[in-house]
Computed example of a mutant assay.
Amino acid sequence: MPLVRVTNFAISLDGYGAGEPQSLEAPFGHAGMKLHEWRFATWRPGAPNGVDALFGRQYDVGFGAEIMGANKFGPPGWQDDPDWRGWWGEDPPFHTPTYVLTHRPREPLEMEGGTTFHFLSTSPADALAIAQEAAGDLDVRIGGGATTVRTFVAAGLVDHLHLAMVPLVLGRGTLLWEGLEGLEEQFHIESVVAPSGVVHLSLTRRSPDA
């Protein structure tokens, strides 16, 4: 059965998925790119082929569609710019139908490389049903940001999460764990510590009879 998954989602030690304030100049707020340096390091020539690289390579494996929140597609206010086409240029890295949750939907945006952005104003469950139909026999990725991941987890719609907990404290921003008390009762949790200090957390939904 196809799954609903989160992959390579970076959080700080205190559980923030982005800093604040987010803007065109600072997509991750005061966090800058610190939450994602572990992945960038694996792309450099001669980088170790270790734990971080192994997890990083799983980012886009096995997916047929993605769902993301409005703030992942653009900075606050992008809905007022009819020419805004996302952060990633004309060939975004998704290569699948990608569903952007926004209160102000617009016409689909077809990009190079197989990515088409669809803009939805609907519930998480309805958005997931649309994405699953597009994905067919492949999985659906919940791509973020933290609010979107948290919403889908709270609704019981996520089967597996891979979180990369980066060794830094942000102190403020968008919190992943808010309202998710008792999550360990719903998910089996494993962890692997990379030499970089990043803790890779794998959360797999427990079966009802487990």
Rank of each mutant, 00 (worst) to 15 (best):
G143R: 01
V192S: 03
R141Y: 05
F63C: 10
V100Q: 07
R85K: 14
E184V: 11
E112A: 15
L163Q: 05
G29T: 13
L183W: 15
H118V: 01
A10F: 06
E184D: 15
H200E: 03
M33C: 07
V192Y: 11
L35P: 08
G74M: 11
F187P: 12
A47Y: 00
S123E: 09
R172V: 08
A154C: 06
F73C: 06
G74A: 03
T122L: 05
R106F: 05
V192R: 14
L120P: 00
L3F: 03
L24F: 14
V6F: 06
R85I: 02
S207E: 14
A125M: 11
R104S: 14
V149D: 02
P97V: 02
F9V: 06
L138E: 09
S191W: 14
R39Q: 13
G113V: 05
T115M: 02
G143Y: 07
G179Y: 10
H200K: 07
P2S: 05
G171S: 11
E133N: 11
V158P: 03
P208G: 00
S23Q: 03
A47D: 05
A135F: 04
L175T: 10
G136E: 01
F73E: 06
E190H: 13
M1P: 12
S196H: 12
S23R: 11
A210S: 15
H160V: 01
D80S: 14
L203S: 00
G144T: 00
E178D: 15
A210H: 14
G50L: 09
G29C: 10
P105A: 06
R141K: 15
A154Q: 11
T7M: 15
P92V: 00
V158R: 06
N8H: 01
V153T: 07
L203D: 10
F119L: 01
P124C: 10
I67S: 12
S121Y: 11
F119H: 02
S12N: 13
D83T: 14
G136D: 08
E190F: 04
V169Y: 15
R172I: 07
D83M: 13
G89R: 12
G113D: 00
W177R: 08
M165E: 14
